[in-house]
Design a protein around this nucleic acid. Structure first.
Length: 344
DNA sequence: TCTGGGGTCCTAGGACCC
DNA sequence: TCTGGGGTCCTAGGACCC
């Protein structure tokens, strides 16, 4: 009888790999994709090729910093449609293997697989993906999604790694809590202040103590993460967004209020287009503002009547804008909408 | 380091109602 | 009069992930 396994498939340097595929002359060179591809502009690195990472360039880093660290890198603009097309090709390939596929963004997916040889299945996945798309991936093999996801890092690049209840503590016990999926820098710091710096320490923490200090939901959840416990199923049902947002960071801060209103109109109209295409009305509208230098706020309202109408979304955004500080220079503006969540 | 854009989920206070 | 407890909705903010 075949056993249930979770495979986490993660494309290696996905965006950079897509760019190199269509420009083979970039192969082997440091390539950095981010913003509009101009490292003198405001923007951050989306993905750096392995060659660029050698210079200390990584995701989320300001483009200016990346250019300083690796002046010889090729800088390219983000081309979302190209990555979406490549992603679709990858996900279709995964589905063709006859497994449940849960998509996690452009370059990752969980597979629910019944097999007695998960490594052999992982190899089949890697071969199918590279044959069809030319892209390489790493595979994490786990007895649940959490362990599969964490395992992938140990398989990179182009490899695989198995992480289960069996070897969980051997692999993870002495690592910082930050190594867990769902614990970021802020939470790791809070946990360290409570005396929990490693996965082992967090796993052995008193759950009541954690609930008291970190909340009744989050506290016990962090402890489960540290123990590698996760019972969530691999869910292959089509993704239904809770909301959509559009935002722009300006190369020069905005100080003219007429420009602020014009930008909000544009963002609201784009969102209304998205909503109409989906055939779902918005129930809430929010405006986001980032004043110079980096002070971010949101204002939101619930619509009296759910709507996907461009005028209604725009009117809501402009009404919210009256609560902004017209005297301050603005670095970023955004509009987001939330839809009604269909009850399952 | 001078900090994008697209998302998800949790928390917490106040309003409001019974 | 000076005081309840619970439930739900609204709003703002924050943490995290890719």
């Amino acid at each position: 009888m075949a056993s249930p396994w979770v495979l986490h498939v993660d494309l290696d340097q996905f965006i950079a790999a897509v760019e190199v595929l269509r420009r083979p002359e970039l192969s082997g060179r440091p390539v950095v994709i981010g913003g509009r591809g101009d490292p003198s502009e405001r923007g951050v690195v989306s993905t750096a090729s392995y060659e660029a990472r050698e210079y200390g360039v990584g995701s989320g880093m300001p483009l200016r910093t990346a250019a300083r660290r690796c002046p010889d890198a090729v800088f390219l603009p983000v081309d979302a449609p190209a990555y979406e097309a490549a992603s679709t090709e990858v996900m279709d390939t995964l589905r063709s293997l006859g497994t449940v596929v849960e998509v996690l963004g452009w370059d990752e997916a969980f597979l629910g697989v019944g097999t007695d040889d998960p490594e052999a299945f992982a190899r089949r996945v890697q071969e199918a993906v590279v044959d069809v798309t030319g892209l390489h991936c790493s595979v994490g093999i786990g007895d649940n999604k959490l362990r599969a996801k964490i395992a992938t890092e140990f398989g990179k690049p182009r490899g695989m790694f198995r992480l289960t209840e069996e070897n969980w503590y051997a692999v993870m016990a002495d690592r910082p809590t930050h190594a867990l999926w769902g614990i970021g820098k802020k939470t790791a710091k809070r946990l360290a202040a409570l005396g929990f710096s490693t996965v082992r320490e967090l796993a052995q923490a008193d759950p009541h103590h954690l609930a008291e200090r970190l909340g009744p939901t989050m506290g016990p959840w962090y402890r489960r993460l540290a123990r590698g416990v996760d019972s969530s199923p691999v869910d292959g049902s089509p993704y239904i967004a809770r909301g959509h947002g559009r935002e722009t960071t300006f190369q020069q801060n905005l100080t003219d209020w007429a420009e602020v209103e014009a930008e909000l109109r544009r963002l609201a109209e784009r969102l209304a287009d998205d909503l109409r295409r989906e055939g779902r009305p918005a129930v809430r509208v929010a405006v986001k503002v980032r004043y110079a230098p980096f002070d971010t706020h949101t204002r939101s309202l619930t619509l009296e009547v759910p709507s996907a109408d461009s005028d209604a979304i725009t009117a809501a955004a402009l009404a919210l804008a009256t609560k902004l500080d017209a005297g301050r220079a603005i670095r970023l503006l955004g509009v987001r909408v939330e839809m009604d969540t269909p009850k399952s």
